[in-house]
Amino acid sequence: VTVHVNRYTYHFDNPEEAEKFAREMAKRLNMTVEIHGNTLKVE
């Protein structure tokens, strides 16, 4: 599972951890999480 935050890319083996990380980053940056299959984008 890949998480994109701005120009950074993070890889996770565990989808739940990836989503938790993405949501935490989105909250911190006041952004939203978009899910595209195995890719989560924080925008």
Rank of each mutant, 00 (worst) to 15 (best):
G37H: 06
E17L: 10
T2G: 02
N38M: 06
N6C: 15
K41H: 14
T32H: 11
N38H: 07
T32S: 09
H11T: 09
N30E: 05
R7S: 13
E17G: 03
M31Q: 04
E17F: 06
V5S: 02
R7K: 13
N6P: 03
Y10D: 00
E34C: 14
K27W: 08
I35W: 14
H36C: 14
E43N: 12
R28D: 05
F21C: 05
N30H: 11
Y8I: 13
N38T: 08
P15H: 14
N30S: 07
F21T: 00
Y10G: 00
A18C: 02
T32Y: 08
F21E: 00
N14I: 07
T39N: 10
V5M: 06
K41Q: 08
V42P: 04
E19P: 00
H36T: 10
H36Q: 11
V1F: 15
G37D: 07
T2D: 08
R28S: 06
E24Q: 11
K41M: 13
M31S: 09
N38D: 09
G37R: 04
H11V: 10
H11W: 14
A18W: 02
E17Q: 09
H4F: 07
N38A: 07
F12R: 00
D13E: 11
R28F: 08
Y8G: 05
V42M: 04
Y8D: 10
K41D: 05
E43C: 15
A26Y: 02
T32R: 13
N30G: 14
L29T: 04
N30C: 13
E24G: 07
K20C: 14
T9R: 09
H11Y: 14
E43A: 14
Y8S: 09
T9W: 08
N6W: 13
Y10S: 01
E19R: 09
R28T: 06
V5G: 03
N30L: 04
N14R: 06
I35S: 07
L29G: 05
A18F: 02
H36Y: 12
K20H: 09
P15G: 07
K20T: 10
T2S: 08
V42H: 04
D13P: 07
K27Q: 12
Y8E: 12
G37A: 05
Y8K: 14
H36G: 04
L40I: 15
N38G: 07
E43I: 15
E43V: 15
N6Y: 13
E24H: 09
L40N: 04
M25Y: 05
N38E: 05
R7P: 05
T2K: 08
E24R: 12
E19M: 15
A26V: 02
R23G: 04
N38Y: 03
V33F: 05
T9K: 10
M25P: 00
T32G: 05
K27V: 10
P15T: 10
N6L: 14
L40A: 04
N14Q: 06
D13Y: 07
M25W: 12
H4D: 03
A22V: 03
E24F: 12
R7N: 13
T39C: 15
T9I: 14
T32A: 08
F12Y: 02
